[in-house]
């Protein structure tokens, strides 16, 4: 899932000053799971904006809604009327949701209410950890199912660096050294030979930071 966290309220409040009608749009998917952009957070943010406006002596009407999945154009269709009627929209979905609103309802001003942080998993109540970097070329089979690209602080491919001590990463005591985990896992699987071979430099061309990527499924594209 995509994990995101709320921007500071002051930051959002500052951006809506000068507007008299805004809407807050949440998303029922990932950000609902990580408690940053679901219906509850929409209600809270709308309420805080109203209170702040009142305190500051501004007139502000705040509409609220949560769509099932803000990253898909068909799901945001129903909020189109709101958005067209408002001066600005605060999207509390991930960055994909924000851009779906922008694309669907030009030239609406869409303000991101969240910082999208990573692709990860809820590992215990209230704790989400990064698990995938979307690097475009999965190595999980060779690494015992632990991702070194997203979980090693240096994205190393040839084993732990010299800063791995007692199973911890040199960067912080609360970060496990994923290469230590990989080693232990491969050891248990009897596959330590996976650690012996020299892994060549990664093809970052298929990863983030190269060029915008796309997935094309021809038979769904019609024509």
């Amino acid at each position: 899932m995509i994990v995101a966290e709320s921007k500071l309220f002051e930051e959002i409040n500052k951006l809506v000053k000068g507007y008299s009608k805004v809407s807050v749009i949440g998303c029922g998917d990932c950000v609902t799971v990580c408690h940053s952009g679901g219906q509850k957070q929409v209600e809270e943010l709308a309420l805080k904006l109203r209170i702040a406006a009142k305190r500051e002596g501004r007139k502000l009407e705040v509409k609220e809604d949560t769509v099932l999945r803000q990253c898909e154009q068909e799901y945001v269709e129903p909020v189109g009327d709101y958005i067209k009627d408002c001066d600005a929209v605060i999207s509390i979905a991930c960055g994909i949701g924000v851009q779906t609103l922008v694309e669907k309802f030009p030239p609406a001003r869409v303000i991101p209410g969240l910082n999208t942080t990573f692709m990860g998993a809820p590992v215990q109540p209230g704790l989400f950890l990064e698990r995938c970097a979307g690097c475009g070329e999965c190595v999980l089979d060779e690494t015992g199912g632990f991702c070194p690209v997203s979980r090693c602080s240096k994205s190393l491919l040839n084993g732990p660096c010299g800063g791995s001590m007692g199973g911890k990463c040199e960067v912080a005591q609360d970060i496990p050294c994923v290469w230590h985990q990989i080693y232990d896992q491969l050891d248990k699987q009897g596959r330590l030979d996976c650690m012996d071979e020299i892994k060549p430099p990664k093809r970052w061309s298929v990863s983030t930071g190269s060029a915008p990527r796309k997935l094309e499924i021809k038979h769904l594209q019609g024509g």
Binding site: G159, P160, G162, Y183
Partner: peptide, 10 residues
């Protein structure tokens, strides 16, 4: 550094 057994392999 750890894992110690890997250090000579590295």
């Amino acid at each position: 550094a750890d894992p110690f057994k890997f250090r000579a392999v590295r």
